[in-house]
Amino acid sequence: MSDADRLAGYIETWWQAIGDFTALLDSLPDDAWALPTDLPGWDVKAVAAHTAHLESILGGGPDEQADIGEAPHVTGPMGQFTEIGVVTRRDRTPASIIEEIRERTTRRHDELLAEPPTDGNAPAPGLFGLVGWNQQTLFRNRPLDVWMHEQDVRRAVGMPGGLDTAGAQHTADYLSEAFGFVVGKKVKPPVGTTAVLAVDGTRVVAVDGQLRRRADRWVGHGP
């Protein structure tokens, strides 16, 4: 598969994930936006604001600055950066945050369709490129991030679902690739060990004694 085809697939999955996420946000009652999520210090509104922040940056929006104050859940430069998008949207209405996500992503989607990326190794734009990401990493990460945040919101508000979407499949496949790292770098079992990860609906990942990764079959997706 060419870079262009692969990147186009990521873009389509991201676009579907955006549609799923904004539809979920649209369905929430006002009081749901203050419910805490699994992400330390972030409620539903913060998760939506964070998504709007990143999509705004990628959609050509302004560089945002804010004093994030004392935030015990913020650890490290990346946390400080992401918190800015939460702080700058703290006084915004839920509807305006949803509209921002829609407006920015629609514009960017149109641009990406008109001028599709073709080189996965090219540096990602702006801040994402500064942290060492290329286009492949960026376009592959966005559907994962959006879908993970949809699930953060769903767990917070008690609305399970969205587990069979394109974003869900993409995320499960992507995360399963880290299994080799987890086994080989974190656990470091004795040579000769084979560790197998089997997740419903996702390609099985087996890491052998030499910590070589292989995928050999699929697990059926349960009900």
């Binding site: 699994d38 993970m148 699930q151 869900a168 499960a172 995360l175 399963s176 419903d200 996702t202």
Partner: peptide, 14 residues
């Protein structure tokens, strides 16, 4: 494991 359990585990959520 099922997909939801994997996601919350591998995603570092809970």
């Amino acid at each position: 494991m099922d997909r939801e359990s994997f996601i919350v585990l591998a995603g570092g959520r809970r």
